[in-house]
C-alpha cells in the first residue's frame, strides 16, 4: 500500500504538486492522468524518492520513505519510463538482470529469472536474449523495459508514460499484455499517462490531476458517470461517454449463457467473453446482426448477446 499525505513539491516559487492525498491499495492499478505539466510525473517520482517532496509524507506499507535508504526503497519498486531507458551497451538479458545483479543473486537464479520473464513477456529468449536494445522494435524494447522492472519481483511497479512513444497498434498490444500480466502477478501499480482511454482501460482507480492537485480519484466507471468537475468531464469526453462506458464492461456481463457450452467451429475473428460490449455492438452493426454468438477462451460457444440488451443496459 502507498499513501501520500498532504504531499507538496515546489520548484522555486512554482508549486508543481499541491497537498496531494492519495491512497493506493495493495494489488490495484492506480492511473494518474492529466495534461502535461499537471504534476503527475512529479508525483510518481516522489514515490521512489527520485525527487524529494517539499512537505507532507509518503508511506510505503506504513513506513515513511524519507527515513528509508533510497536505494533499498527503489530496489523494491519496478520502474518503467517512456522511451524504455534501456542501457544501449548491455544486451537484453543483461538489462533484465540489472536489479537481480544489484541484489547479488546467484548466477543460476538470475539466468532462470531472465528466461522466465522473457517468456512471460512473449519474447523468445533464444532469439532476443543476446540482442542489443537498438536491434529491437519499439514494442519489443518496451516489453524488455517491463521485464526489467519485474525482474526482482518487486511489490510495487511505477510506470511513467511507458507506452507513450510507440505506435497505436503496438500500444494496444502492450496494454492487453499489461492487463494479462497484472492478472498473473498482481503488483501495486502506479501508472502515469495523458491518454484517458489508456487510463480507462488499465486502471482499477483513476486519479485525475490538474495544476498539481488531484481533482477526482475514483473507479473508471464513476469517473465516466459522475465526473467531479467540468475539467474531468471534458477530459473523458462529454458526448463519447456512452461508448466509453460500454468499453469498460465485458460481454460476459450481458450475454445469455447456454445451458452447456457447445463445441463449435473455432474461428479467429469470433467474439469472446472477455471482449467489451463496445466491440460486440460494433460487430453487430457491421455485420447487421440482431445477435451474435460468444465464445470462451477454449473456442466453445458459451452463449449469445443481443443488440437490444446492449442498447438497454450497456451504458
Amino acid at each position: 500500500m502507498i499513501e501520500l499525505r498532504n504531499v507538496t513539491r515546489r520548484f522555486g516559487d512554482t508549486v508543481a504538486v499541491d497537498r496531494v492525498n492519495l491512497t493506493i491499495e495493495t494489488g490495484e492499478v492506480c492511473v494518474l492522468v492529466g495534461s502535461s505539466g499537471c504534476g503527475k510525473s512529479t508525483t510518481l517520482r516522489m514515490i521512489n524518492h527520485l525527487l524529494p517532496h517539499s512537505a507532507g509524507e509518503i508511506l510505503v506499507d506504513g513506513e515513511d520513505t524519507t527515513a528509508m535508504n533510497p536505494q533499498q526503497l527503489r530496489l523494491n519498486m519496478g520502474y518503467v519510463i517512456q522511451g524504455t531507458g534501456l542501457f544501449p551497451h548491455w544486451t537484453v538479458a543483461r538489462n533484465i538482470a540489472m536489479v537481480p545483479r544489484l541484489l547479488k543473486w546467484p548466477r543460476q537464479r538470475i539466468d532462470a529469472r531472465v528466461d522466465e520473464l522473457m517468456k512471460l513477456l512473449d519474447l523468445d529468449p533464444a532469439t532476443h536474449a543476446h540482442k542489443y536494445p537498438q536491434q529491437l522494435s519499439g514494442g519489443q524494447a518496451q516489453r524488455v523495459g517491463v521485464a526489467r522492472a519485474l525482474a526482482a519481483d518487486p511489490n510495487i511497479l511505477l510506470m511513467d508514460e511507458p507506452f507513450g512513444a510507440v505506435d497505436a497498434i503496438t500500444r494496444e498490444n502492450l496494454q492487453l499484455e499489461m492487463l494479462r500480466i497484472q492478472r498473473q502477478v498482481r503488483k501495486t501499480t502506479v501508472f502515469v499517462t495523458h491518454d484517458i482511454d489508456e487510463a480507462l482501460k488499465l486502471a482499477s482507480r483513476i486519479a485525475v490531476m490538474d495544476q498539481g492537485r488531484i481533482i477526482q480519484h475514483d473507479t473508471p466507471e464513476n469517473i465516466l458517470r459522475r465526473p467531479a468537475s467540468d475539467f474531468v468531464e471534458s477530459l473523458v469526453g462529454k458526448q463519447d461517454r456512452g461508448l466509453k462506458l460500454m468499453s469498460l464492461r465485458p460481454v460476459r456481463d450481458l450475454m445469455t449463457p447456454h445451458g452447456s457450452p457447445k463445441p463449435s467451429r473455432p474461428g479467429a475473428d469470433v467474439l469472446r467473453e472477455d471482449d467489451n460490449l463496445r466491440l460486440a455492438l460494433s460487430v453487430m452493426l457491421w455485420q447487421d446482426l440482431p445477435q451474435v454468438a460468444v465464445f470462451n477462451a477454449r473456442g466453445e460457444e458459451t452463449g449469445v448477446i443481443t443488440r437490444e440488451r446492449i442498447i438497454q443496459e450497456g451504458a
Binding site: N48, L50, R74, L75, Y79, I81, G85, F87, M98, L102
Partner: peptide, 10 residues
Amino acid sequence: SLADAGRGMG
C-alpha cells in the same frame, strides 16, 4: 534519462 533509469531502479 539513462542515468535516471539507473537511479530509479536502485
